[in-house]
Nucleic acid binder design. Structure first.
Lengths: 342, 342
DNA sequence: CCAGCAATTGAAACCGTTTTGAGCAGCGCG
DNA sequence: CGCGCTGCTCAAAACGGTTTCAATTGCTGG
């Protein structure tokens, strides 16, 4: 059943039927009701492909996912972000299209998305310093919102981010307040913008208290269980091991915990651990009692909000870029405690 | 730059240009080269929306993700599957469209996808017993491939699955061979088809050796860290605690390990753990030495293969349904050892 | 020399919508 | 009585490609 057939059945022109269904004011209300009823009765749904061609809009948003050679973006955080964004799209009748491409094809993918008209805008994931995608997208004129920020980019652009610097500063201060001074940082890869900011927050907290940062207590790697384990294992073998650890994620934290326990130490007593918790739906940080003390910020909610920003931007392409900074909440769990006098 | 403009520049008709670019044999080779060169020079890319309308194909595949009220599908396994499938789609110039919808809207979403012509086919995730989606999709005539199987469905349909029964049977046998007899099963939710099959494999192995299954050693829950922790914590408090555990996933296994360690026991010595490892890219089961002994099967590879099956099905809608059963590999890691005599 | 065929190109229809530009009827008002 | 306006409807032209069908040209073989 297409528009023309429906119009014929009603003895109306396709024009009127189209207008009736799309709520245009110039159609007679009784006519509109007849049309609506007939559409429902015959189970008519306008063909999306035709709408897209006729209106010139794709009614779709793209997410480009480079396949990991240098860095694995397909991680649990990403999945939850996507889920959040997807909720927003569904509510607004937009499609979400994911492009999984080898990272050397990333630029070509963005250009293709624009010139072939597959999407009306994109979300940029995991920005790095001076991220080239921002320049590219502005150049080709494809609306975008960045999840995170890209230090070094001069021109304004739309982004939504968590205050990573502040979160890690507070986490470090929390440990300092407990009397810890040998505090380790198990960070994500430091070409990622968020990791740089976290490092800054950590360093700021230390220097405010007049504590010199010890390079031996700072690592930067993928946020995996194994990487977290290795990093902490190595640090615990130092002559002066850390008594507390700030870790980048739930998963790194689990690796850290495994390292602590395999050194026959106890988390929360011998070694305190504080993590950043993205509040992933299938990886809750405990239920009643949080496993880890954490700085928490829901990445799913971030996905919802970023998607909303993008849809607004698409609706009003000439509006000024929007920015939004979310604050993380400090959650006290079982993994931290006062420093024990050696 | 659109087709007509390009044709004008070349002094050719749109027809010929279209044919030249799409490799039709009836166009003169020198003409084709001229056209190709001009297309490249002017950076011409045909408008996807127009192609889709003209050809009647969506050149897109759908993945419908119900939002968790009863069960969280947005999990790390899902993310890796999607990544694998996405690779296949990109290579074949298909779009992947994800619909994140409240689960009561799931049926309407599938119907809409079909009647509005947004996609040419779908992948069905996480099938349950007698999964209603299979009947629905056959009824509305939308090509599909199921990732997993749906026990109870009579008519044949296309699916790709891991031999879960066999994997868990082998895992259990492996523990039995090490002398364990109190073997626990920390299973996923048992309305999920794969969980049922895993349970069957576990039970088969036990009964073959004449061991009666103990209901107190069998749990079924979400495959999260917390659930794994809880289940194992409770079982270790039993008068006759298990000496070995078969767990559903890497994440459950981590919860299990935390429970074992917080009971001041050692994994691989006091309690053996064997997991099913989906070989997730950001959650590797160790690097050189596997952390957990595991039955391993790459879910990312499964995604690639399932997507290929679906594209074939779309190309030949009248072909018979395809099935493919993948075998899991048994990986010996550090988390298992012979039973220690109490 | 001409019918017939192969090779190449083009005009026009088509895909299923939206949107533009009229047209028609009825009504109020000068 | 006629003009303009409002309210409603429709025919036709987009949108940007693909595909069908027809046309032209140059050869080949009888």
């Amino acid at each position: 059943m297409n528009l023309k057939e429906l119009a014929n059945k009603l003895g109306l022109s396709p024009t009127t039927v189209s207008r009736a269904l799309n709520g245009y004011p110039e159609v007679n209300e009784t006519t509109r009701e007849r049309v609506m009823a007939a559409a429902k009765r015959h189970n008519y749904h306008p063909n999306t492909r035709a709408i897209r061609l006729a209106t010139g809009r794709a009614m779709a948003v793209g997410h480009v996912i480079p396949i990991a050679t240098r860095h694995e973006i397909v991680n649990p955080v990403f999945a939850d972000f996507i889920a959040g964004a997807g909720e927003t799209y569904s509510r607004n009748d937009y499609d979400m299209v994911l492009s999984v491409v080898p990272d050397e094809d990333e630029e070509a993918t963005y250009r293709g998305l624009k010139s072939k008209g597959n999407v009306d805008g994109v979300i940029v994931h995991a920005p790095t310093m001076n991220d080239p995608r921002i320049t590219l997208l502005r150049e080709i004129g494809l609306p975008f919102v960045v999840h995170g920020r890209a230090t070094g980019t001069a021109e304004p652009y739309s982004w939504l981010d968590v205050n990573n610097r502040r979160a890690f500063q507070r986490a470090t201060e929390f440990l300092l307040d407990l009397g810890h001074t040998r505090i380790a940082l198990v960070n994500g890869l430091e070409f990622m913008d968020f990791a740089i900011r976290r490092r800054t927050g950590y360093l700021d907290a230390l220097s405010t208290r007049g504590i010199a940062a010890d390079p031996a207590l700072m690592t930067s790697d993928e946020m995996t269980e194994v990487a977290g384990f290795r990093a902490v294992q190595a640090m615990l073998a130092l002559p002066q091991p850390p008594t507390a650890i700030v870790a980048s994620s739930m998963i790194s934290g689990m690796g850290a915990r495994r390292a602590v326990e395999s050194a026959r130490l106890t988390v929360g007593r011998d070694v305190s651990i504080i993590i950043h918790d993205d509040d992933l739906s299938y990886m809750k940080n405990g239920e009643d009692v949080p496993i880890f003390t954490a700085t928490r910020s829901s990445v799913r909610e971030a996905g919802r909000l970023a998607a909303e920003m993008l849809l607004q931007l698409i609706a009003q392409p000439d509006a000024a870029p929007q920015q939004r900074l979310l604050e993380a909440e400090l959650i006290i769990g079982q993994s931290t405690g006062p420093v024990t006098k050696g």
